[in-house]
Design a protein around this nucleic acid. Sequence first.
DNA 1: AGCTGTATGTACCGACCGGTAACATTGTCA
DNA 2: TGACAATGTTACCGGTCGGTACATACAGCT
Lengths: 202, 202
Amino acid sequence: MTQSSKIEDRAERGRQPAAAEKILDVARDLFYRQGIRAIGVEEIVRTAGVAKPSLYRAFSSKDELAASYLRRYDREFWERFDEAVVAHPGDPRAQILAFLTRVGKRTQTPSYRGCGMTNAAVEYPEPDHPARKVSEDNKRELRRRLRAMAHDMNAADADTLGDGLLLLIEGAYISGQLFGTGGPAQSVARNAELLIDASLKR
Amino acid sequence: MTQSSKIEDRAERGRQPAAAEKILDVARDLFYRQGIRAIGVEEIVRTAGVAKPSLYRAFSSKDELAASYLRRYDREFWERFDEAVVAHPGDPRAQILAFLTRVGKRTQTPSYRGCGMTNAAVEYPEPDHPARKVSEDNKRELRRRLRAMAHDMNAADADTLGDGLLLLIEGAYISGQLFGTGGPAQSVARNAELLIDASLKR
DNA sequence: AGCTGTATGTACCGACCGGTAACATTGTCA
DNA sequence: TGACAATGTTACCGGTCGGTACATACAGCT
């Protein structure tokens, strides 16, 4: 992480301004539900009930606020991921299936809007945008871990299986927000199961 | 299709204004590469070398221009899809694999920016946005056809296989633009092959 | 009380957004 | 040559964009 926002620096040594926290909470909500480009800073501060300068005191720009939102998203993502991992120690197949079962369920909720990381990468194709960098880092790490888990499963071609699982996951994120309830994303865990079992050495 | 632009009405009975065609060409290019929200109408008409009123004479709004761009994208998409279909008559497995092989190759080109339909749906979560409607229609039809093909393959659970293929495809679209060359999308055809063979009745 | 530093708010900026009105110019076909 | 459709030119609209100079409220400390 080459750059971080003022509020995140603060958080590391405790106590941060109340306004900044409210702003990040609101930004997280609005950015996720409606998209980053669709939401203006005006709307964020209005909803948060704070003044605009409070935003720019805690975040150097809207782009940096978006990056902060994604860094927080990243932390929460790995928390969820690791929950599935620790629930099935030493059993990567069960770990992935547990994670995907939860993803599949989440995609069937009305407010589901996909993965904040994926959406941000679609909104910002420019490689040097701060938000996109966070997103790319997250996805690279996810790919690395999935491939490692596929390897631990003794897959015939671990890299291919890890990548296949990543494709299914990203497909679930997108289809979940495209089709809503009843869409293809509900079968992501089942399809992963089929793909895994077809990929194991026999 | 409840609404269509003036230029599309014209196209049905031949001869359309040259300016409108140039605008749609440029919009297609800029919208696809940089996103719809990221591109202003000013930039479109400047790049197309036409005056702004020419845009609004052919398209009632920017949103409608975006929808026209996607309708054209839809036509071209099904052309590519049907190419793979007619290349392997009566063999849905080979049809899908041919299509996915091409998708996988396209994702490895530097300028790849995913599926214009998918990207538009991410950019516009509002259900009544004209661009999103085109996108949703396209995806619903794609799902329908994939499920039908899975059925023709004699899959044990055709709907699940069809949806699994759709997840892989969407995953390839997203991963292709997220990871660039060398990303997980290159293995989409191979993973589809594994998934299909694991889903056939034995 | 008085001072000081921090957190917050008020009011404003120039730039650009999508979109339009009014009118001049071009090209084409009869 | 006349008529008409297509296009260009110019100027403009209200609204919103991201961002900031400056004033104020309010702690805690002495």
